[in-house]
Simulated assay, not measured.
Amino acid sequence: MATVTSSRDLPHPSLEEIRLESVLHALADPIRMRMVRDLATTDGGMSCSAFDVPVSASTATYHFRVLRESGVIRQAYKGTAKVSWLRQDDLAKLFPGLLDSMVEASTRQSGRLGEAS
């Protein structure tokens, strides 16, 4: 796992450490998939507080950690806010088309089931 240089740095797997089964596990949860869909619609990162998910802050923190440790997202502190970005380029190198397909399928399912985006 990547080296953490200060208490404000968050560990992220290197490209070589990202495994398909971890990514699929992270994307299998509906709350995490919703977070990924939200990130896929932004050009920049999103602060954790900007996500509208039906879970407590501590549960959201857990979901962000699963996404980060699997290599789906990158997180960094910007001032007092923790900001998240999709690792789209990294995932596209390792698993071409996977993230785009998952986001598209999840968006279609959400619309089909009448769920909030």
Score class of each variant (00 low, 15 high):
residue 94 L to Q: 01
residue 61 T to W: 00
residue 46 M to V: 04
residue 18 I to L: 13
residue 45 G to C: 12
residue 36 V to N: 05
residue 10 L to M: 08
residue 28 A to Q: 15
residue 91 L to G: 08
residue 60 A to C: 15
residue 22 S to A: 11
residue 43 D to F: 14
residue 73 I to E: 07
residue 45 G to L: 04
residue 9 D to C: 11
residue 17 E to Y: 08
residue 93 K to H: 13
residue 80 T to H: 02
residue 36 V to R: 00
residue 29 D to N: 10
residue 40 A to T: 02
residue 7 S to H: 11
residue 8 R to Q: 11
residue 71 G to R: 01
residue 84 S to P: 09
residue 78 K to Y: 00
residue 85 W to M: 10
residue 43 D to Y: 12
residue 84 S to M: 15
residue 6 S to P: 09
residue 90 D to V: 11
residue 77 Y to S: 09
residue 23 V to L: 10
residue 93 K to P: 03
residue 47 S to D: 05
residue 21 E to F: 12
residue 82 K to P: 00
residue 52 D to F: 12
residue 62 Y to I: 06
residue 47 S to K: 01
residue 70 S to Q: 11
residue 26 A to W: 11
residue 49 S to T: 06
residue 36 V to Q: 14
residue 42 T to M: 05
residue 20 L to G: 15
residue 58 S to I: 01
residue 57 A to S: 03
residue 58 S to Q: 07
residue 61 T to C: 04
residue 16 E to L: 07
residue 54 P to M: 11
residue 39 L to R: 00
residue 8 R to M: 10
residue 32 R to N: 09
residue 36 V to I: 07
residue 65 R to S: 12
residue 91 L to Y: 12
residue 15 L to K: 09
residue 35 M to H: 10
residue 21 E to M: 09
residue 28 A to E: 15
residue 46 M to A: 03
residue 11 P to S: 07
residue 19 R to E: 10
residue 29 D to G: 14
residue 18 I to E: 09
residue 92 A to Q: 08
residue 63 H to C: 07
residue 84 S to N: 05
residue 42 T to S: 12
residue 21 E to C: 15
residue 89 D to C: 02
residue 94 L to I: 14
residue 66 V to Y: 07
residue 65 R to D: 04
residue 63 H to L: 03
residue 94 L to H: 11
residue 10 L to Q: 06
residue 85 W to G: 05
residue 30 P to T: 11
residue 66 V to D: 01
residue 19 R to I: 06
residue 17 E to N: 12
residue 42 T to F: 14
residue 6 S to L: 14
residue 45 G to H: 06
residue 49 S to L: 03
residue 31 I to W: 07
residue 81 A to H: 09
residue 21 E to L: 15
residue 86 L to M: 05
residue 7 S to P: 07
residue 41 T to S: 13
residue 15 L to V: 04
residue 26 A to V: 05
residue 74 R to N: 04
residue 44 G to T: 08
residue 31 I to Q: 14
residue 59 T to L: 11
residue 24 L to G: 13
residue 63 H to Y: 15
residue 81 A to W: 07
residue 12 H to N: 03
residue 27 L to N: 03
residue 43 D to I: 02
residue 29 D to C: 13
residue 74 R to W: 04
residue 53 V to P: 08
residue 93 K to Y: 09
residue 59 T to A: 11
residue 48 C to N: 08
residue 46 M to N: 04
residue 36 V to T: 13
residue 10 L to W: 04
residue 49 S to N: 09
residue 85 W to E: 08
residue 31 I to M: 14
residue 17 E to T: 12
residue 37 R to S: 13
residue 50 A to Q: 15
residue 35 M to R: 01
residue 32 R to P: 04
residue 65 R to V: 10
residue 13 P to T: 05
residue 90 D to T: 04
residue 79 G to V: 06
residue 76 A to Q: 06
residue 65 R to K: 10
residue 69 E to T: 07
residue 87 R to G: 04
residue 44 G to M: 10
residue 21 E to S: 14
residue 74 R to A: 06
residue 78 K to E: 01
residue 46 M to T: 03
residue 48 C to F: 00
residue 90 D to N: 06
residue 57 A to T: 05
residue 20 L to H: 13
